[in-house]
Write a protein that binds this DNA or RNA. Structure first.
Lengths: 252, 252
DNA sequence: AACTCGGGTTGACACAGATCAAAGGGGTAC
DNA sequence: GTACCCCTTTGATCTGTGTCAACCCGAGTT
């Protein structure tokens, strides 16, 4: 019997596939940003080999001991928290060059789950060693702080979205955010493939999957986007952006 | 003419009132947690004098250059973000021992506003110097990371609240959170004074002020709490906690 | 003591999004 | 190739919260 993709929890490590930060085309987005060649090779030394995950596999789970943060080398992840009463909230989607696992630093235990939404690969960054090195390399230390701060700012943006926006605004903000992040990685700003289900989008946006689906349909009817299952094409980015600034405008 | 409390934006600095971390009764909650006497005095050296704020005064505003983080020494703050189209989202309430301003690290510019909700005092912690010192003191470095990580985890909790809870659950979670934080500071878990308006609570919880008010009234009718304006007494903490785990229970 | 004003409460009604239900479509496993 | 299952779409109805409006209360002012 073959291991089912969704149930296979055995980590697939591939130490042979390690690629140095200095060789990585994500170095401008990722943790080594701004480091000298020399410092980058010191960072290389502490980064564990890449770890590959199949779609559906957990990178880590809430409750597991925290030891490392992870840089997404390739693929796509979601993070979610769930309460004892069964509530489930997707807290973010992470793509190449983004850092996962910083929630675990505060208590030494992961507080959310990280799941690969497609076959993916991460770099493993042992946190104690990273702290050690960052105390020696100022720019690394500062960049780490920036990465953590950026996560805080991002979360505030999601709070704004969840606290003040209506369904279509939320979805527009979500699509524009994805678009912008794909652009930063050299992909098309207008055309991309969603790796997550409507339900996962809904959980992230505080909506039910039917509402997400209806909003997609409405956008399509209005000629804003074209949707074919998970394939999205944004046809009118300016009008999409205008959705975020409601008609009543800037009222003091 | 006397300066109006709400309009006075001139920082009131009181260098003479500086209290060393080692003398501060918040040291177990605040940044110096876990430091040796010796290291604590080095931290003392970089912390600027306290800054006092009147109710309504801004500690910092979105758009201002970031230079320091702040530790609340006394009083009560809110942070909020607002978009160009006038939306306003309260992202948190901070009390003694909590750290403010970490949102500014990532871009060197503050991304939210911090406002004193009562007469307050903060310690000013210049961030560049803090990074310098934390590269020398391992436990300080690690604790700083923990504080930032805790902020991320807290934000995930708010996302859960905004994304999955109904109005009364949100308010219950909010009150229990306040209760727990007051307890940690040696105050009553059951009886406290709200420093924020219904509208600010509503903004934080993603609700309108009328909904907050109705939820308070309902709780009072049910004998869960007693409310007298901003004075709150939680009469039945266990039942309050039970509100967070809906009746349908743990459904897989 | 009367006035004022911001914050809070309460009621009536509207509506966005949830819920319930059913059917269609595409990918994956065999 | 075919079948199954999950994901998605769409419709009908329900409901929690928002909206609008009136009134109340308490603190500070005159």
């Amino acid at each position: 019997m073959h291991a089912n993709v969704k149930q296979n929890v055995i980590p697939i490590t591939a130490p042979g596939l390690k690629v140095a930060c200095s060789q990585c085309n994500l170095r401008e987005l990722c943790l080594p940003f701004g480091l000298s060649e020399d410092d980058m090779s010191r960072l290389d030394d502490l980064i564990g080999g890449g770890r590959k995950l199949k779609r559906g596999q957990h990178l880590y789970r809430a409750g597991e001991a925290f030891e490392s943060i992870f840089a997404v080398k390739a693929g796509f992840f979601k993070t979610d928290v769930l309460t004892e009463d069964g509530r489930d909230q997707v807290t973010g989607f992470q793509m190449a060059g983004e850092i996962l696992g910083m929630d675990g630093i505060s208590t030494e235990v992961h507080t959310c789950n990280a799941v690969a939404l497609e076959d993916s690969e991460v770099c493993l960054i042992p946190f104690t060693e990273l702290e050690m090195l960052s105390s020696q390399i100022r720019s690394l230390q500062h960049h780490l702080h920036k990465v953590m701060s950026r996560e805080i700012v991002r979360d505030h943006g999601v709070m704004m979205l969840l606290g003040t926006m209506r369904a279509e605004e939320r979805l527009a903000a979500f699509l524009l955010n994805l678009s912008q992040r794909f652009t930063a990685r050299g992909y098309s700003p207008a055309e991309f493939h969603l790796r997550m289900t409507r339900e996962e989008i809904g959980s992230y946006l505080g909506l039910k999957l039917e509402t997400v689906s209806r909003a997609f349909s409405r956008f399509q009817d209005e000629g804003l986007i074209s949707v074919q299952q998970k394939h999205i094409r944004i046809l009118d980015i300016p009008r999409m952006k205008a959705l975020l600034a409601p008609p009543d405008g800037r009222i003091g």
